[in-house]
Write a protein that binds this DNA or RNA. Structure first.
Lengths: 239, 239
DNA sequence: GCAAAAGTGTTGTGTCTACACCCATGT
DNA sequence: ACATGGGTGTAGACACAACACTTTTGC
């Protein structure tokens, strides 16, 4: 196995016969109205001290998804991950200074409510104003954020931001943070119910000390990714 | 470089220290109302004689996109490719019988009008009833077809199916084939013009021998992929 | 009663499909 | 004249945003 060369022999990529392969994850969650990304402080060269996305080398006989789950398990309780999907594979030979390295990035989501412990070298950072990131990780983070934003409007991916059951205004907070603009609770409820994504659990949340009408609890009908608005336009005729 | 082992030593994937990496392309076009995919007849084991997607090994110091373009150049005039985008990377250790092989698939599109010559071992096949394909290539083909179908409704990807300039009914034929259902020329024109994707060239196509009103020629305003319907729902307020 | 929070009713707008109708050309 | 293919006008359906209004709680 190639051990991580740390700048001892900065050979140009062309001299490497075969690329190494790493998996990375853009793990996002929404807290206090902002999207946060899980970052890790590198203790090795290259880019020692810089923040980076969690991940690492692909091991023999594992799939990319198994690999990223294994690496993530060292940073966060993987059971808290409500969704994981492949983003893309980056291959620019100059993306890593010391070796020819391919990187397959995943998007992971953590629902509100869950608050997994993370090791001391790992922390959540606001995705809007991240620290300087290693390699091409900032660009990958942006790609993850965009993917989430886009899918919120035509899939049920909201399930991955919400806990089992929730009130509409709790769900609204997740959408507001993830989309970056205001969303009315009124219309959010109507859109998601009309599309059959949400159903009432029948229970209610008791109001806080300042009063207010008790809120109905909802859940997502499915907690697996489904496309809910497949034809924005150019629908098949007669339907 | 690993030469293609042809079943001589079918070692389990776990014994390979590092994966090989190939790039593949799902190259699609629409002809006579059907989607066709470019396939190639394998002359080597494994899967000798089976049809397969074009592609091959990644070479040192090239990016994945350079790699797939290089391999495609052997099968088709790459200048005819109007669009190329990454689909996904497959990593199941059992996807190849003889080696541990990762595969990054691309989606390529060829516009109507262009009719590139292909070598004798390569041909266009209807994507609906393909021959038995090697490895996981049938599934990748399906993924490519789905990607095209989805993007037709919320991006300007139609430019990649159409030549420089075209009549609405020619464009309609491409959409009908790609979507697999009828599309009215009337509404197609209105949707694409309203969204600012199409503009008239000012020229007209002379009618054929059977008469008819001459058709206006259109072109796509941009021939690079753009998202044109970013918010199917949950638009930002006040806009 | 009053404030707070949740939820419903309703109106207006924009975008789409469907279909009737008009236009320009060849024979 | 009439067939053929292209294009416009228009009406209805639908989904959405916005906002006024009602409901249910705590104090």
């Amino acid at each position: 196995m190639t051990t991580s060369a740390h700048g001892v022999e900065p050979a140009p990529a062309a001299t490497w016969p075969a690329p190494t392969h790493v998996t990375l994850a853009v793990v996002l969650r929404v807290r206090e109205g902002r999207v946060q990304v899980l970052l890790w402080q590198r203790s090795e060269e290259p880019c020692r001290g810089r923040s980076a996305l969690p991940g690492g080398y692909l091991e023999p006989a594992e799939t990319l998804e198994q690999s990223i789950r294994r690496h993530l398990a060292q940073k966060v309780d993987v059971r808290e991950l409500s969704h994981l999907e492949q983003l893309e594979t980056r291959s620019d030979p100059s993306r890593h200074p010391d070796e020819w390295q391919l990187a397959t990035a995943y998007l992971g989501l953590v629902p509100s409510g869950a608050d997994p412990a993370v090791p001391s070298d790992t922390a959540w950072h606001p995705v809007d104003e991240p620290p300087v990131l290693a390699f091409d990780h900032e660009d990958l983070t942006l790609a993850g954020r965009e993917r989430l934003r886009a899918k919120l409007s035509y899939t049920n991916i909201g399930f991955a931001l919400a806990p089992e059951s929730f009130t509409i205004s709790e769900l609204r907070n997740q959408y507001v943070g993830a989309l970056g603009h205001d969303v009315s609770a009124t219309n959010l409820q109507r859109v998601l119910v009309r599309r059959g994504l949400l159903e009432e659990t029948g229970e209610r949340r008791e109001p806080g000390p300042s009063g207010g009408r008790p809120a109905a609890l909802y859940r997502f009908r499915s907690r697996r990714l489904e496309v809910t608005d497949p034809f924005a336009v150019l629908r098949p005729p007669g339907d």
